[in-house]
Structure formats: structure tokens, C-alpha cells
Nucleic acid binder design. Structure first.
Lengths: 212, 212
DNA sequence: CTAAAAAATTAAAGTAGTTGAAGAAATCAG
DNA sequence: CTGATTTCTTCAACTACTTTAATTTTTTAG
């Protein structure tokens, strides 16, 4: 999706029990729609686990995004690189979030984005044919993804509003308030690339905010 | 939705024949899902026509957004007003677009946005109870709105990417290329509020772009 | 644990975009 | 059609943010 998560705030502190990952997925889905046992089995059969080492790519600019991905553990960034080689981060994703490039996934066209692991990351992924199959067999999943998209859309609308309304200091403060975990977990350089400012300026801002 | 449109580029030049407005809605829906006669009737029965004079409000900051709206004719802006009284335009909508504040519509909470007509505007609107009823009776509509949301989400993702990647001149050029009709139709002041710059600076940019 | 690499800090000079103010042009309501 | 209002343009002074570059601190890989 490149989309965001179901609803809750931080599903951290997972130990690596087997079955753990799949149950996190089911929990995430059941936040919005109820599944019976058969449906759960079908869902689980259609998602494939995948591991990413830190700095490994889930998707590169120019490739087609063939799956949607649910993050079980770890953290990724979705970003573009402009003609001057600068990175611009569209979103981060951590435990419980869905990531991908929906445009490329749906149209089969080349993606403009990279998706890269910021930490060692475990995912569950579903291909487009399998997702279409899932929509057919379990129409409730159509509703689930509609709700997911609604939430993602709302979050992006908020972000656009902020990029228009707030200066860099305001955007930074909002970010750390909204995602306190990311504030710790993610290098400042990346946060700057998300906020649309230079790391140098972010460093200055933080100093001012500490003092003042 | 605050969402965007089905797919096409500009459904302009509508004359005001009766039935015209509803058929535009059905056309818009049938771009993505097929409806039979009974379903069309149900859809039509659930949407209420509404007229807005130029400068009239469809929604005000602080109100709850009780309907989603399909624009048949005319043009609106969705915007917030910051603590200094400045307007920030999240999106424009014209013929064939869906507008609303999805967050407020779904949660029942107060909206942070105003929606105001830039021209005399005709809409078709559906309330939340009626939309839920429609999802029940015509599950295909669940799919239709999922697709609509996907497109809207993708468009917003692109806009975020641009706000990070491009300077004001680049954003302006992209805007006029992507929405040539709006370039004509909408006052520069409003375009500036959409791009996140002052009207003064936009005027300077346009001059430079004409010359150079 | 250690060397090497990446990230964060600081400072000074430069640039993209803002502010305020004033006049010209376009649009609107009656 | 006309006066009133809103929008657009231009200019000069100003501010938020960038750039470059040097130094320090933190993180990483082996």
C-alpha cells in the first residue's frame, strides 16, 4: 500500500516465537473485520514470509512492485531520489504497518520509489493475483483494505496540510509527538529527509528547541 | 472523500439537461464497477442534489462532515486556516470529483477543513447511513470506493513526493501541466495557497518563467 | 575491542521565499 | 454600466532554510 497501519499505536516488543508473525497479521485484520477459521487459514496460506537485512531493498525505483507487504518486525523507509541525488522520504513503516507502492502494484508500471530496510526486518507479503483471489473468496477483505486505505488517505491529507501550514520547527515537533518511537529509532538524517529539510538545519532546530 | 476523481481528465462542457447530473454520477461509478438497472435506481435514490452559490460553504471547520459529495458542475476548494489566518488549500475539486472530509465523515468528529465553492456548483450527496446501506445492498460499491480511495491515495503520495522534491517553480509547472483547466479557472491567489507560497512570489515566478 | 564509516554539530556565507506597501488591472454586485 | 472590491504586479528589506566545510560523536562491521 505505501499505506500505514490499521489503527493502534506501536505493537513493539515482539519476541520471535513461531506463529507470532502470522498472528500479528490476523490481529491487524481483525481490528476491522471478523474472520472465521477457514478464512484465517486462507489468508495465512496466501501470505509469504520474507526477511530483509538492514540496508536491503524491498523495492527499487524502476522495478514493478509485485506484492503488498505487512511488517511483522523491523522498520523500512519509502523514498524517492531526485535528479541531484537527494533522498526524500515519503513514509516510514514499522511493526503493524502495510508498505508497498500501490501505484506500481495496481498498474504494473515501474515504481518511482525505493523501499529499504532501516533495521533487519520480517515481512509477510501477498502478490497481486493472490490478493485478487482473496477479494473473490473473502469479500470482507475488500472492506478491510478499503478501511486501511481510508486511514492512510486521511493520514496523508494531514501531512499535506502540515507541509502547507507549519514551518520546519513545527513539523519536527509534530513528528516527534506523533511518532515518539521513531524519534528514538531513526537517525536524524532520515527524519530530516522526511520533514523536507537538511540534517544541518534539523540539528540547529533541535538545539534551539532544547534551549528555548 | 476529499478524494479526487474516478479516472478521466476533465468532464467539462455540461449543459444543464435534467437527468444529466445523475447520469454523470453513474458514468463515474461504472468506470470501475458494472451496475444493473435495480442497482442504478438504488444509487440514484440515495444521492440528494445540492446547489451552492459561489463563496457558499459545503463544510466549515468545526462542523461534522455528514455527507460525501460528487461534483456535477462547478468547482470547490478544501482548505484549512492556520492560527495567523492564512488559507492552505489541500485540494480543488471540479466536475467528476468526490469531495468531503473523510476523517470527519468516518469518525463523526469535527472537521479541520472548510469546503467552499469557487463557482456556482451542483453536487450530489450521500449521507453516512445511506452509504452504509449502499455497501450492504450493493457490495460492488465497496469495491468502487476502494478503487476511488486507491487513486486518491496515490495522487496524495505523489503530491507529498513533490512537496519534498521540487521547489516552488517546479511545483507550479507541474500543477499547470497536470491540471491545465484549473490554471485558467482558478485565481492565482488560490493556486499559491495550494502550492504553499505567497501570491506575490507566484507572480514573480510566472514572470521569470515567461521570460526565461 | 578496534578501526573505519556514518551521523551529528557548529559556524559563516548564500539563496529561495516572505513581508509590507502602493499602484494597476481585472472582476463582481447591483 | 459603474463603483466597489478583489486580485495581480512590482520593489526593497527581511527571514527561514541551504550550502560548504571542518570537527566531534556515534554506530557499525569484523
Amino acid at each position: 500500500m505505501g499505506a500505514g497501519k490499521g489503527q493502534t499505536n506501536e505493537n513493539s516488543a515482539l519476541t520471535a516465537k513461531p506463529g507470532m508473525s502470522t498472528s500479528l497479521l490476523i490481529q491487524n485484520i481483525e481490528r476491522h473485520v471478523h474472520l472465521d477459521v477457514g478464512e484465517i487459514e486462507l489468508v495465512l496460506s496466501l501470505f509469504q514470509p520474507k526477511q530483509l537485512k538492514r540496508k536491503a531493498f524491498l523495492l527499487r525505483q524502476g522495478e514493478v512492485c509485485r506484492s503488498e507487504h505487512f511488517i511483522v518486525k523491523g522498520c523500512v523507509k519509502i523514498y524517492s531520489i531526485d535528479e541531484n541525488g537527494f533522498e526524500h522520504i515519503l513514509m516510514f513503516g514499522a511493526e503493524g504497518w502495510w508498505v508497498g507502492d500501490l501505484f506500481s502494484f495496481l498498474t504494473g508500471k515501474e515504481s518511482r520509489y525505493h523501499i529499504e530496510a532501516l533495521e533487519d526486518t520480517q515481512l509477510l507479503q501477498i502478490t497481486k493475483p493472490d490478493l485478487d483471489l482473496l477479494y473473490e473468496k473473502v469479500p470482507k477483505m475488500e472492506r478491510f483494505f478499503r478501511i486501511l486505505l481510508q486511514n492512510a488517505f486521511i493520514a496523508h491529507m494531514e501531512r499535506i496540510d502540515q507541509s502547507l501550514s507549519l514551518d520546519a520547527a513545527g513539523r519536527y515537533q509534530h513528528f516527534v509527538r506523533k511518532y515518539p518511537a521513531f524519534g528514538q529509532r531513526i537517525p536524524q538524517k532520515q527524519i530530516a529527509a522526511y520533514l523536507g529539510i537538511t540534517p544541518v538545519f534539523l540539528s540547529m532546530l533541535r538545539k534551539k528547541l532544547m534551549e528555548g
